[in-house]
Design a protein around this nucleic acid. Sequence first.
DNA 1: TTGAAAGCGCTAACAT
DNA 2: ATGTTAGCGCTTTCAA
Lengths: 338, 338
Amino acid sequence: MHDMRDRPEPVTMATIARMAGVTQPTVSRAFNHPARLSPETLDRIMQAVRQTGYVPNIVAGGLASSRSRVLAAIVPSVVNITYVALIRTFSAIMRQRGYQVMLMESGFDATEEERLVALSLAHRPEGILLTGIQHSEQCRRMLVASGIPVVEVWDLTRSPVDVCVGFSHEGAARAAARHMLSRGYRHFATAAVDDARAIRRNLAFAQELRANGHACRMGRDLPGLPSIRSGRAAFARLIEDGLPIGQSAIFCSSDVMAQGVMIEARARSIEIPREVAVMGFGDQDHAADLDPPLTTIRIDRDALGQRAAEALIARIDRQDVPERRIDIGFTIVERNSL
Amino acid sequence: MHDMRDRPEPVTMATIARMAGVTQPTVSRAFNHPARLSPETLDRIMQAVRQTGYVPNIVAGGLASSRSRVLAAIVPSVVNITYVALIRTFSAIMRQRGYQVMLMESGFDATEEERLVALSLAHRPEGILLTGIQHSEQCRRMLVASGIPVVEVWDLTRSPVDVCVGFSHEGAARAAARHMLSRGYRHFATAAVDDARAIRRNLAFAQELRANGHACRMGRDLPGLPSIRSGRAAFARLIEDGLPIGQSAIFCSSDVMAQGVMIEARARSIEIPREVAVMGFGDQDHAADLDPPLTTIRIDRDALGQRAAEALIARIDRQDVPERRIDIGFTIVERNSL
DNA sequence: TTGAAAGCGCTAACAT
DNA sequence: ATGTTAGCGCTTTCAA
């Protein structure tokens, strides 16, 4: 084994104060209100800081000021780019404002989310970001009782815990249906995993089709996360269940599912989009680089992260927040798969 | 705008103590050493806790005990599954031990990493996870001076800041070369993005080939993150530069790159593996679901996360740490693309 | 411009 | 089994 580094006695503001011949609160001012100090004093302090490599203890500061400088973010999955891309923008903006974010993964499970919220609360975050609007009753109660600002992302609702930023999943699905109709497709199907938002979209998709006199084959929703495997399986099932070849369009719950559909179609020598057309959801990075390039629905995840950050900052600063519902919309990106 | 919820006066251990008719330290004991309390006292305290929904303030506790219960983790990219899959396992294990992790993204930039380490230090994490072994001098100094346990993942080195867990990139690349040779391929190329670890692998790959009397076309390393686009571009360039069709094998810097290579090959009607064979790196989730299934090098990222967690816990607890270098190895997964 | 004093919400001795 | 006391490293009045 290797030698334990003995803890050197920790450097604190008191240490710096002693070195600079001032009192500890003066050192605190050097960091928080440098303008209020005489240049000479500031200089001596900063010299001591440099010599020691001292870094102020935010935790102690947070305790004193009741500002932890910490945020909590809970996403369903940290390996799913759909949810993480947003966190990246959110974190970057927040970091600039002096916040660090604790990222946690709920695994699409409301009970686990509730547990994580409880854990977060112990760190007294100044704000919490939650994915989606479906939380356990207990979770909502804890959140409300804590009085901590909360931003819910990806969905819109009339009764957010605090603020929500997202888009209309139903609207996007209806737009997809209308787009396919206008393109002349006559047979429709969905390929989705068992995910609350995807299911809501598919329902709206089928409804819009029905309103226009068309039926929709609802692919059986597959368990687990969206994956190429699920996409392949979904397409295989659809074909085996008799989806007509020609004038058919498939609405996928994500780009990854669509990718799976395309791979399976190729393996079965079914040509896309001539024989079967495909639409994805999400417009992930490589949607444009597939062959054929994937037609999909773009959600501006950066905007989502940014608006979420802005909304949360406003709530933390107790500014007037005019809208508790922020709609970032969606766009259909036409490429060649449909 | 909507009504600001007025902050109710915060519930603390003192509040609970008053309600339960005990002193505040007794409430502390109820959480940290419940066995030392009489069942009746414990009961009264817990009742008050339930009534108020009180959650102990870990930050204050951390200040008092010098145990922040916080960890910092810095990865190059939070949207790249390669780096995040590990964090997920790591976080889950650490959470069970009562730690929360602050996740940060360095963007493959040592200077940014240095900044993030400095920011982390302000939160007095009990341990830090770093990706890779290349850090700025200043960064290493800060780390060592802080005395905080550090685990470096993905690479092995004889001189880690503290502990490292990874595997031999050179060894993996040489194994790939030998594997291709044994399969009878005669023309070799690499397809990589401009990434330190990928470049090291490619060098070792070419060297092993040379040692066996074969040349290797080094695909020009593409800028940016690995993507399907880069993979397509790399393959296109290789073909245009005259890579022979037949008995050729391409060593990719990641599975995503390999996926791009396969897509571009298909678009050019080049059959894999008959005309050109492809090997990926990483064995990501859908490697097996591609068509053809991708032959690749598996790195057990869960093991990486787990061993990293274990090593860090050992260091935090100041246990004897016999090995500062933990090799988790790699395996070649034979599927059909090579 | 700086110092003195108090206190943030806990944990950890040490008493009893 | 519980209370008393101190103190973690800061920020924030209030004085001077």
